[in-house]
Design a protein around this nucleic acid. Structure first.
Lengths: 338, 338
DNA sequence: TTGTAGGCGTTATCAC
DNA sequence: GTGATAACGCCTACAA
């Protein structure tokens, strides 16, 4: 049963005051000096009629939509699920709604058209690729926006995690276990996160006085990880001896990589140890349970929303989020076998 | 660099026509009879100024927000990721934006307050629990809404999948392999999907002339699945002989269940076969690769949005989505060992 | 073929 | 302490 909508005027009529008064009561206007009994009447009428402010009218008037946007490449990627959770929680605490859309490259421009003008007060881009046409479009849309988790050429507003340190933590763990031939299953070369994790790997190997093992790039997918791991395990002329441990840039790739290890007739961690970036609940249910490096993804989402709310039009943001990065040791890493 | 916003009036001034003409050009009013050169001028001005309609003004005037809402319990659950994808795609093709929020029970009411009035034209509830206070609130909000994937007491608008058939397909597969002692790791008792999958299990067992094996309920989580499977494997007085196969109501539980099997020192599928509802990319990377029943989840999301767009206020919808349900056979099922 | 005008529901600036 | 009034930007009958 759909009732006809209730407006300020209805409430005002019922409470026998002007709409302006109702508006200021609703918005808790601190400059409003009102008799307690009048306020009571207004509140009662609101309750009685079930009044809820019309968002369209309000944002037309105030030019604030109380809504933020968040773009991700894919809802099925649990890494983004974490980011969404944090962003949504922070948006909620500010009284904002978060609209999350998945789209890549060209699709994003089309999506922005559907979003239209005046629907969102700010936009977060997580995992977006380089796209100068898009950034131009966003700048023209006259809403604040920033990139999350990865950077893009020419973009000067972003928050990222310390992927380099995460990689170093993973590698140091392997070194401490006694591994010396440590390979790197990297992310796709175009990904900023991949580059920073690879840099962390290289730095940590150098610090440990170890030569860089073979490095193979793969998409952040199980299939990509499986293919890359298969290549790592294939004896080559470069490395007479196969690696005893692999630092995998991403947990999705690691899942595929583990399968490739099994397919090669090897055992984890006896023949090869594996550690990956990003902790998922799933990791502890894999076989063997996967050692990971946990990153504060939800915090990243939260921070992004906070910044959106306080950003001035031409502000620059280049932030590496300070937050706990920790090794979650499980069963996929152990001292080298022989 | 944020430019001042461009309105219809700006475009009209530049094209030397009235705002009304611009509006009708923008909205492709078919009754508009306009000289080609005038239209050209308008289009050029729109392009030149980068005009995009103000959503707030438009929806205030038309009382349509061109936005649908979708509620899910948790972004991290890949089952909902599939539903979101389908819903988003269908919404996009209708020129709508989809806002997806995660909230449960009480949180949903608070979320609806933030959504306010007039921001969304319809609401999809996926995986929502029984909550008559909530449904009352939704009805009062005067927007069409319906439940997706599961039903709730007293709610007469929903679209669900044929979970009963999915369960039967899984059980028939096990029967065909030669299993006779088939246990059921069910979902939580309050979940409608769990009840329908359990009904499918019971019917299929009856059809096969087999006695129902032990049935244990668990949350749709790896932890829940692990605990339940452990109980199933514990010898009890009821069942002298342990099951040779288990039909698991949900893939997340199955992941935990597989771990419990290993922890018990048993091997899949040699000692126990496992088949679960819902196919995920991940399933083929588990060890062993998990046999699943694929359900048309994206199609469910798509159908929900389609219905929202065409629902009359007091329409009733009780639809079991017709769509392919198929067994994806992998390595976790095999004929019984002995 | 194009222009006029009223109003969607709200907020903010006045006035009383 | 409370009320009147003018926008916010757009759509749409109706008029010209």
């Amino acid at each position: 049963m759909m009732r006809t909508r209730v407006t300020l005027a209805d409430v005002a009529a019922m409470a026998r005051v002007d709409r302006a008064v109702v508006s200021r009561v609703v918005n808790k206007d601190p400059t409003l000096n009102i008799r307690p009994e009048t306020r009571e009447r207004v509140l009662a009428a609101i309750e009685e009629l079930g009044y809820r402010p019309n968002v369209a009218a309000r944002s037309l008037r105030t030019s604030r939509a109380h809504m933020f946007g968040l773009f991700i490449p894919d809802f099925a990627n649990p890494v983004y699920a974490e980011i969404i959770k944090g962003a949504e929680a922070e948006a909620a605490s500010q009284g904002y709604v978060l609209v999350t859309g998945s789209a890549t490259g060209a699709g994003l421009g089309e999506y922005m058209d559907r979003i239209g003008q005046g629907r969102i007060d700010g936009l977060l881009l997580a995992g977006a690729a380089d796209d100068s046409a898009l950034t131009a479009q966003l700048d023209q849309a006259a809403i604040p926006w920033l990139m999350l988790n990865n950077r893009s050429r020419g973009v000067k507003r972003y928050v990222i995690l310390d992927d380099q340190r995460a990689a170093a933590i993973a590698v140091e763990h392997l070194v401490l276990l006694g591994h010396r031939r440590i390979a790197h299953l990297a992310g796709p070369s175009r990904a900023d996160t991949a580059a920073r994790r690879s840099a962390g790997y290289s730095a940590a190997m150098r610090d440990a006085g170890l030569p860089e093992g073979p490095i193979v790039a793969a998409d952040y997918t199980p299939a990509g990880g499986a293919a890359a791991m298969a290549r790592l395990l294939t004896p080559s002329s470069d490395a007479a001896e196969p690696p005893t441990a692999v630092f995998v840039a991403n947990v999705a790739s690691a899942i595929g990589a583990m399968q490739a290890v099994r397919a090669a007739g090897l055992e984890i961690p006896r023949d090869v140890s594996i550690v990956a970036v990003h902790d998922l609940e799933l990791a502890s249910y894999l076989h063997p349970a996967l050692t990971t490096v946990r990153m504060p993804l939800a915090e990243l989402g939260r921070r992004g929303v906070t910044l959106l709310g306080s950003l001035k039009p031409d502000d620059t943001v280049a932030e590496v989020l300070a937050g706990p990065i920790e090794l979650i040791q499980r069963s996929s890493t152990a001292p080298p076998g022989r």
